[in-house]
Amino acid sequence: MINLIKRDAIIQKNQLLIFIPFILFFVFMDTHPVIIFLVASIFIPFNAFAYDEQAETNILLNSLPYTRKEIIAARYLGALVYMLLSVALTAITLLIFNKPFTMEQIGFGISMFVLFAACSFPLFNILKQGYISLVLLISFLFLVGIVPKWVDKLLPHIPTIINFITNLSNLVLYGSVLLFTLILYIVSWMLSTYLYQRKTF
């Protein structure tokens, strides 16, 4: 399974050369740190999925001595591994260029990635090839561009929820968000496994 996780980096060795310039673009544009950590986390896992979609890699993977459960497990675990590496590299880059960020912003960026991955990974087993990348791009733009604005508009109209949230300690608040996203990620993992085991190639 480790070889399956390493495969994502190997097949993207040329694309990884633009990872730092990709992050630097957002840094120099003074993008919010949460968004920078989010897009950095997405870079490797979703490039791997896009490659698999174009090359029909699933046919090859299923000819190798791996079960379908292991293939899905490698994708979900690999996404977390590359997310952590990307977050660490992004944090170092921000520090080098003296761009301030907080641990809370890292946490929210990670939570947004896990949420987006949990919602989108099963789509690779549902949608037809050729449509997945477009749907994910639209979904990502929706998540980054529209959802925060909706939240900002809705918050003033729900004072009860605001009071409840503000009374929570940071540890409880961030822990609850992390727990929710992890549970959703596990449910997504189980759903993808179920769909993939019944898919024909």
Score class of each variant (00 low, 15 high):
Tyr131Trp: 13
Tyr131Val: 12
Val135Lys: 04
Leu141Gln: 08
Ser111Phe: 09
Leu123Gly: 09
Phe121Gln: 14
Cys119Phe: 14
Gly107His: 08
Val135Trp: 02
Ile106Cys: 05
Leu115Arg: 04
Phe121Ile: 09
Ala118Gln: 04
Ile126Val: 03
Leu127Arg: 14
Gly130Gln: 00
Ile110Gln: 03
Phe108Ala: 11
Leu136Thr: 11
Ile126Gly: 03
Phe140Asp: 07
Leu134Met: 10
Ser120Met: 10
Leu137Phe: 11
Gly107Asn: 09
Lys128Ser: 07
Ser133Leu: 07
Asn125Phe: 01
Ser133Pro: 06
Leu143Gly: 01
Phe116Trp: 00
Leu115Gln: 05
Phe142Tyr: 06
Leu137Ala: 06
Leu115Trp: 02
Phe116Gln: 04
Phe108Lys: 08
Val135Arg: 03
Ser120Pro: 09
Phe121Arg: 13
Pro122Phe: 00
Ser120Tyr: 00
Glu104Phe: 12
Ala118Ile: 08
Phe142Glu: 03
Ser120Thr: 08
Met103Tyr: 14
Leu143Ser: 02
Gln105Tyr: 02
Leu141Lys: 09
Val114Arg: 03
Leu134Val: 13
Ala117Cys: 10
Pro122Ser: 01
Gln129His: 13
Ala118Cys: 04
Phe101Tyr: 06
Phe108Cys: 10
Ser133Val: 14
Ile138Asp: 03
Ile110Phe: 03
Phe101Ala: 06
Ser139Trp: 00
Gly109Asn: 10
Ile106Gln: 08
Ala118Asn: 09
Phe140Pro: 05
Tyr131Thr: 14
Phe108His: 11
Ile110Cys: 07
Phe113Cys: 02
Pro122Leu: 00
Ser120Ile: 01
Gln129Thr: 14
Phe116Ala: 00
Ala118Tyr: 02
Ile126Met: 01
Leu127Thr: 12
Phe124Trp: 05
Leu143Pro: 05
Ile132Trp: 05
Met112Asp: 08
Ile126Gln: 01
Ser133Ala: 14
Leu127Asn: 13
Asn125Gln: 09
Gln129Gly: 12
Val135Ala: 03
Ile132Leu: 07
Ser120His: 01
Ile138Asn: 05
Val114Gly: 00
Phe113Asn: 04
Met103Thr: 14
Phe140Gln: 14
Gly107Gln: 11
Cys119Ser: 14
Met103His: 10
Gly109Gln: 01
Ser111Ile: 10
Ser111Thr: 12
Phe113Lys: 02
Thr102Ser: 15
Phe124Tyr: 15
Gly107Tyr: 04
Leu134Pro: 00
Asn125Ser: 15
Leu137Asn: 13
Ile110Tyr: 04
Leu127Asp: 07
Leu143Asn: 08
Leu123Cys: 10
Glu104Cys: 07
Leu143Trp: 08
Glu104Asn: 15
Gln105Pro: 08
Phe142Leu: 09
Ala118Val: 09
Ile106Trp: 12
Ser139Lys: 03
Leu137Gly: 12
Met103Phe: 15
Gly130Asp: 01
Gly130Glu: 00
Asn125Arg: 12
Phe140His: 09
Ala117Asn: 13
Glu104His: 13
